[in-house]
């Protein structure tokens, strides 16, 4: 059995306009590997939301994506402030994004909920003032049905 593929990206926290670049790159690779459209979309949205979170809250971090025969694993690690109350952060509409970020159309409080919705497993490890690591898994064969159309409902 072939080893898992690993793709590593540094997410630049100082450059807001490049946020999302890693998920576009991952999307391209998954397309080349021949995955179906739905899986590609779920991975790229979950990863995109995570990338934006790292840029907005933690001045960047790193993204590692592992692909093996069964699943795509996304590990996003930052050295940001940590999440004081994960349950609260998971609530739709809850956001601590500053006003200047909201002015760009972000900060709708849908980041973490969307990441959970589009993946099969999500684990958050966080230590205040030290950082957060989010691990997400999307299984290749049993595709979780996400409601089409609701995905664009904001983040």
């Amino acid at each position: 059995m072939a080893e898992a593929l690993r793709f590593h990206y540094e997410v630049d926290g100082d450059n807001f306009t490049s946020a999302g670049a890693a998920s576009v790159e991952v999307k391209r690779k998954l397309r080349q590997l021949g995955f179906d459209a739905e899986l590609i979309r779920r991975v790229s949205i979950a990863m995109y939301e995570g990338e934006i979170n790292m840029v907005v809250h933690a001045r960047g971090g790193s993204a590692d994506v592992y692909v093996d025969k069964d699943c795509v694993t996304i590990i996003l690690a930052d050295r940001g402030p940590g999440i004081p109350d994960i349950d609260l952060a998971m609530q739709e509409g809850y956001s601590t994004a500053p006003d200047n970020i909201r002015a760009l159309g972000f900060g709708a409080g849908m980041g973490l909920p969307n990441m959970k919705r589009y993946t099969d497993e999500m684990k958050i490890e966080t230590v205040l003032k030290q950082g957060t690591t989010v691990t997400m898994k999307v299984y290749i064969n049993h595709t979780k049905q996400t409601e089409k159309g609701t995905s664009e409902e904001g983040k």
Binding site: R31, G34, K69
Partner: peptide, 16 residues
């Protein structure tokens, strides 16, 4: 277009 291989394992080897 640009799919490496029909078989996932082969595609992954090529990607690697």
């Amino acid at each position: 277009v640009g799919k490496f291989d029909e078989d996932l394992t082969t595609a992954m080897q090529k990607m690697s």
